[in-house]
Design a protein around this nucleic acid. Structure first.
Lengths: 214, 214
DNA sequence: CTTGCCGGATTGTTGAACAATCTCTACGGT
DNA sequence: ACCGTAGAGATTGTTCAACAATCCGGCAAG
């Protein structure tokens, strides 16, 4: 057959990834190879390659002889992810340097994007824009590789977001805080931005962990 | 057949990974599926799964319809890798906190390990111990996840190490510097350790890049 | 209620097959 | 001699069907 972009396996991976981040496939769901291969119109072997890909991204989990499942994050996982975020994001801020012209353009874009999505009540998109905000933040000083790592971490966190019952209550408060961090950066107040961000992350983590005890 | 640890694909991945880090398979080498599958005594499909695994680790590179190759790092790659190292390792040092008892045990172990290997002229092992030193450093404050990321980064760097013609001249100078960093840490002089480490990384990067122009 | 065993379901792995694509060489035109 | 090109051979991308290994749920025995 014709190949447009990447191998068939990669295209299947894209489809599955989308279904997961959209919340269509929820954590804990088991993916049966034969049925799903049939569904997607590819062979079992090819589908397995796609599974591997997503396993590496930690969106799926393999259990030997039991199959693949959409990953379920434990409390420990969440704590670990936030630990990474604090380390990377804070480091990026510290190394972001003086505010030159246009430097924070992309960061500003992501803030506006979140605000727009909020106005229109698209809460899932607010979450997406929020994630982009943090990626752009890391992009200020991280380099491709770190950015990619960060994107990965955020993608995993999204697995938890879906467990939150009220997406609005969860995402909305952070929009203003994004803007506050941006403002601090624009005024050259790195230390202030750091402080805001740390509180931001602490609160967000607390909120997620609280959901585990609901 | 009987499985000891992990799937067949994973075991094949281990074998290949070892061959790569041992320098048996050098960057640029093309891996032909059929021949290699025959060699390892597994089916082509299974081997492809192993290839995928290593591709995700960035030790192999896929080129569509052309096959897999042992990855060759470009200068840009090296620069990027060192950029990550500086960010992560420095951040880890900063957050390592006060020197409590036993805190630096593993770091100290890795230094001794390197010294011992050097005495016995096992330069490849010196390189391994060196890598461990940096992993342990990150372990001081990083958390599992960051440690794993770091391990990944170091594994990639090893791809370049093999290009260095004289392993002794490359690895030996850093043994003493490892110890110096450790000493600074033990005396609670974080700032000093940071400075030493930064110079360390800068020198190491410069040395590698120089090799590209040889 | 627990333990152990059976049968059905699903995964792990294989081997063969074929189309799609790449690589290299030989050919012919200029 | 140079260059583009067509074709042959090699290798990958993907599929399919099969079977052994392993897991899961239920049933019978204690």
């Amino acid at each position: 057959m014709y190949v447009n972009s990447g191998s068939t396996a990669e295209r299947m991976a894209v489809i599955l990834r989308d279904r997961i981040t959209a919340g269509e496939l929820t954590p804990g769901t088991r993916l049966i190879e034969e049925a799903m291969a049939e569904d997607l119109g590819v062979s079992r072997n090819t589908l397995r390659e796609a599974f591997r890909l997503l396993t590496y991204e930690r969106l799926l989990v393999y259990e030997l002889n039991r199959g693949v499942f959409v990953r379920t994050l434990s409390e420990r996982d969440v704590v670990e992810l936030y630990r990474v975020r604090r380390m990377i994001e804070m480091a990026a801020l510290r190394e972001s340097g003086k505010p030159e012209s246009g430097k924070f353009g992309k960061v500003a874009d992501s803030v506006r994007e979140a605000e727009k999505a909020a106005e229109e009540g698209r809460w899932h998109d607010v979450g997406t824009a929020n994630m982009r905000f943090h990626r752009e933040l890391v992009g200020l000083a991280g380099g491709e590789r770190v950015e990619e790592f960060m994107a990965q971490i955020l993608a995993e966190l999204r697995l938890v977001f879906h467990v939150m019952k009220d997406p609005r209550r969860f995402h909305e408060p952070y929009i203003g805080r994004n803007r506050a961090v941006l403002a601090a950066l624009l005024s050259g107040d790195i230390a202030g931005a750091e402080k805001l961000l740390r509180e931001y992350l602490d609160d967000s983590e607390r909120q997620l962990l609280a959901a585990y005890h609901g």
